[in-house]
Design a binder for these strands. Sequence first.
RNA 1: GGACGCUUAGCUCAGCGGUAGAGCGCUACCUUCACACGGUAGAAGUCAUAGGUUCGAUUCCUAUAGCGUCCACCA
Length: 898
Amino acid sequence: MLEKKFDPKSFEQNFSFEIEASLRKPEAEPFMVLLPPPNVTGSLHIGHSLCYTLQDILVRYKRLRGYDVLFQPGLDHAGIVTQLLVEKQLYGGGMERGSLSREQLLKEIWLWKEDSGDIIVNQIKILGISCDFSRQRFTMDDGAKKAVAKMFVQLFKDGFIYRQKKMVNWDPFIGSAISDLEVVEKEVDGRSWHVKYMLVNSDDYVTVVTTRPETIFGDVAVAVNPDDHRYSHLVGKMVVVPFTNRKIPIIADKHADMEKGSGAVKITPAHDFNDFEVGERHKLDIIEIMNARGELNENVPEIFQKMDRFKAREKVVELLGKKELLVRAEDIRHTIPFGDRSGVALEPRITYQWFVDAEKLSIPAISAVKDGKIRFIPKHWENLYFEWLSKIRPWCISRQIWWGHRIPAWYGPDGQIFVEESHEEAQEKAVEFYGKNGINLTQDADVLDTWFSSGMWPFITLGWPDETDDMSRYYSKMTITTGFDIIFFWIARMIMMGIYATGNIPFRDVYVHGLVRDEKGQKMSKSKGNVLDPIDLCNKYGADAVRYTLASMASPGRNIKINDRAVEKGRNFLTKLWNAVRFAQMHGCLSNKKFDANTVNSPLAKWIIYHVKNTVTDVEQAIENYRFDEATRHIYRCVWNYLCDWYMEFIKPILQISHLGEEDTSVGVDVDADAGGCSRFKDYDLDVLLTKNDLRNTAAWAILQLVRALYPFCPFIAKKLMGEIGIVDTEWPDLSRINVGFDQSVKEVEFLKNVITSIRSMKQCLRIPVGEKLPVSMEMTNSDANKFMADYRDVLYRMAGVVVEETLTQSVSIVVDGAVIKIGFGEKIDAQREKERLCDERLKLVEARDEILIRLNNSEFLEKASENVIIEHKERLESVSDKIQKVDYVIQSLEIIG
RNA sequence: GGACGCUUAGCUCAGCGGUAGAGCGCUACCUUCACACGGUAGAAGUCAUAGGUUCGAUUCCUAUAGCGUCCACCA
């Protein structure tokens, strides 16, 4: 018997899903899901939880449907993030930054990785994610290293990778180049300064407006727009750069915007993307004035050397003022680029870097989606994908850090590059090239962008470059689940690199979920203090509740605003289910393998079978369409609103009828002998017994099917409850054999529901205490009212609080569907008030009828509307008219009383 | 500046050509022997605005407004 209290903690840790996760079914159709590898250093945040939960739902569902499922886990080395984090730990302790050698630092990071890598894996297990941990990989394990080197060399030899001196986004804090994608534009308060550039041998000057006066030392020209008549007379003249006294020309270039600033702009090719281009157009010098850490270098006057760029800015402004070269300064708001990891302002810088020719790789990647070989769900994300790929620029893949895949390139003494998979091979090539032994090769110091290896993850994990069985079995048959924020970083790169490396698309479906936000819709961040820790939530409400809640909120194309109360809702649902199973246990509803849902006779049983069957079908469809929210809604509705609210209430009075010769396992069997004639069933024997058995078996059956359908969403409680019911094997409910449709039985129960609801409503309206039983009788036009009332007298007694009588004096009638229910309210009825209520009801009915009539009288409607719709309208008209008639009848009868 | 998304009950969100839905909250009643993490009955919406298509529009189209996101923009 289940414990009275639903306490997820008491059983969740008892279940491990590792065995079923590692089970392979070679004969079955393969299906693969790739877990987006979390950072080694990380801990599970709520966004992971959403993504992994949705994947796990898919995976468990597919397993239940008989697929051979591979759910591949792994960890990402997360180059910059991890190195920054470990450095912070080390150097935060007083050690000076950079005091460790490359080898020493790498050793420290590996140690860190060994320690912290398990944290997130354990958290993933707590959440019940059933990936195959026996196959766990790391983006820097030996296989990955081999694959990455091979890929790099292949790309290089095919001309897709090249090394070039070029202006890139440089992060002075990290001391490395970063890719365009790692740049975040932020709007900040800033200042612009109007500076006088004196014309050579003249008192005249040009005012140049700049937000970056510290780059003044790198100026090589002042540009004005060719169409700007304010300055046209000055083009070709020279001005003097403050401090350095270098003479630079005034040039005409369309880059200068007449609307902005003074219309004259200083050109600093070494430190600005636009200026670099201007410089190229006008063959200007490039003067670098900063080092890798953002400090001014030896190309500036001595007092500024080694000064931090922001300090230098202040100093330059101060001295410009002293020199009376500063016209004025104004406060402005502008956007400037920051590094997404370091958070510092970026500095464009000209350096040697490695690039991937992403444009060439993108062509097949675009067509794969255009041709529908890969589809995004929801589809509109394809727009974003196309937009980005269609204007993709070279991808800078080299990073000047130490933690990552070292670039497999070696340099000879003369700078000759050998790109090979290993040092040995490079050495051989060097021997060939130089025609002699003993060449000293130096490996490139840089490592690769983390996303380079991430982009290869679908095939690295399957054993590429070896031609493995896994590769031919699972590759291209994957489903990827991800947030839209990494469509560029990850999805697009996997597609580009996957097609390049294997000739095939890596996956078919890309399911894009929303991002998880706090209840106000704001991004969760440590600094805002609005972070919801999924593990905390699991402890508080259970992992199932967290999973259920996330799934139920995963509506396509929308972010998820989550708070504790949302998870409570999920927990409450599971509590309800838990208690439903307790109810079943208490009433001896045990799963019976011999039970055949097609053989039941009771309309009540058929009714719930009908709804369970529909629910399971709906859940199947919802999952296939990635509508996790709909799937949970269907299960919720069936469990709570059909099974608990109605079916269980229906069967309570019937199961509680005591019966001679029956071993009744239920509790509270003794029904009050005076209770409205319930005891008359004591005269029955076999029929009641059979019905009771059917109802019990059906209850157990319904619960089992629903628990099975819930299993992908909430595996812990599902396992626990199946154990209680006595089922060990997890299966998907196979209801194809069930042939209960929306037949007479189901309609009868729907009618019963309406009768009960109407009587309850009436009683409540008249403020009749719940406990007070009223006599009731019924008239029906088409069917046998007496049989109906006899069949359900116990249900009506218990659920509606009425005692069925054959004839009633002094009754008031209500209309339910096609029937008139007479209720003996006795003195309690206020005929006048009741009449008013009915008149209101009549008014609404008449309105509804008129609306339908207008349509049915419209020839165009009859001509153009579909047949089904017309039939539907006619049926509705009939039923509404019937109701009006009945209501009229009741009003009339009230008038007699009144 | 370009693109996409959103706008439905007090709140959070489903729905989406043919009678407006859920959860929470609210009101009233109920500690009834599965469940107060509960039950019963209620109140509550011109489905952002304006046009258009249609026999019919909350649903499709166009424009507008507000909100959000991404991309581009360092004078």
